[in-house]
Nucleic acid binder design. Structure first.
Lengths: 237, 237
DNA sequence: TAAATAGTGTCTTTAAGACATTATCGC
DNA sequence: GCGATAATGTCTTAAAGACACTATTTA
């Protein structure tokens, strides 16, 4: 192993060797949640799968780095991008002290290019060994997505602009791993206040045409179902 | 303004000038949520209040830095420490490219030293101007605490090892800003599965003695109240 | 008109809201 | 016994669970 990269700042103190941004790109494919991985060609971890990250530069905001790396690998930008965690343990990267800022990135499954420049979609419940401790980052990303699924409009990133209830249901099912009862699914999603019917219908296949819905707000927002806290005091006495 | 600190790594690429860790130390005092601030003595932001952060070194894990800075300022370690966000916009620190990893740190309100080496407890809903954009970090920390209050055992960090229901209620009220109906508060907290009665009672004052409770798990854990998702399909047909 | 899919209605069950009531202390 | 505080019980209201049923399409 070669020696670790080091850095010193102009005031004479040790500095991180670099900063990396890695997007955890998740998408439901064939009914299961997948993550976008790339195969490394250089050491360390040559021929090992990792997240499609890259180095940040001093003139770029970290979200921009994550977006850029994502576009380079998939050809599309993320609809939804949120910071996950920073992994800054000095020992985690053999190249040196390289903290990593992870992002959760969600893109519309419909616009994916399935196979692109060494990138591959892998089911999150069947991950191979990943370099740089990226398996932990994927786990954190999946947990975040699952945790926010019913409480926010995070699914904006995983559905086309207009979608039907059955379509949304299948996406939700792929993410959570649960099969929802259709009428209750509909009721809950409508009660969340996150979506509204557009009035249009999706014709085409057999069966009754499905009504089209859209998200009321495409920027990050919370469901308006009241969070289950105990009641506040009401009586005046 | 002096020139910005720069750094270059041994491979010749620009590197962050430094990395900082800042704990957002929150505690309920006099029924309101407070945050620990220190007054800066040097430029930039001299005589301005900021979070008690510090530089990370290449041989220290970031949680350790946050803990250390906290102990230096309060004399106690955090019972609960969790990473919040990383603020890495290159423009946010006038000294140079200095990403900041923020931590939410909770310590038992009973062991605080109220006034210590330039540190001060300030109510989070009455913050002064803060340097380095720290107001945003405080806001994120408060939001995280409030958001997790009823869904996790995050309150472990804010209560003594053994506590009574009224005591817990007052802490929860200070954090959420809501006055809970006592019997419903008790029912919800018991149903969460996070706490259990120890069998002991807290005697002393007037009135019926209160039963003592403790957290079942002191490491981070989630409430077992089922998260309100729509039902899964049950019927077999 | 049958198969397929989407959408509506509603009864049951569970959980939350709002108190009245009872219990146990110090003085 | 009285004021103070804690704990219990319970009735009401709201939300989730579990389906049966109705509606529209294509083949």
């Amino acid at each position: 192993m070669t020696s670790r990269i080091r850095a010193v700042n102009s005031a004479g103190f040790p500095a991180p060797a670099a900063l990396t941004a890695v997007p955890v790109v998740l998408a439901p494919l064939q009914g299961r949640l997948h993550v976008l991985l790339v195969e490394r060609t250089d050491a360390p971890f040559a021929e090992t799968w990792v997240l499609p990250g890259g180095f940040m530069s001093p003139d770029e905001r970290p979200e921009a780095t994550a977006q850029r790396k994502l576009t380079e690998k998939t050809g599309v930008g993320a609809v939804y991008l949120e910071q996950l965690q920073t992994y800054a343990d000095p020992q985690r990267d053999p190249r040196g002290w390289v903290p990593t800022v992870a992002y959760l990135a969600l893109i519309d499954a419909a616009v994916l290019r399935t196979d692109e420049s060494g990138a591959r979609w892998v089911a999150v419940d069947a991950l191979p060994e990943l370099g740089f401790g990226h398996a932990e980052i994927v786990r954190d990303g999946v947990e975040r997505l699952r945790g926010k699924l019913w409480w926010s409009n995070i699914a904006v990133g995983l559905l086309p602009e207009r979608f039907t209830m059955p379509q949304a249901r299948r996406v939700f099912e792929a993410i959570s791993g649960v099969t929802y009862e259709p009428s209750n699914f509909r009721r809950e999603l409508e009660l969340s206040g996150l979506v509204r019917a557009t009035g249009g219908v999706a014709k085409g296949g057999p069966g009754r045409p499905a009504a089209l819905y859209e998200f009321v707000e495409r920027r990050p927002a919370w469901s308006l179902r009241r969070s289950r806290q105990p009641a506040a005091v009401r009586r005046e006495s």
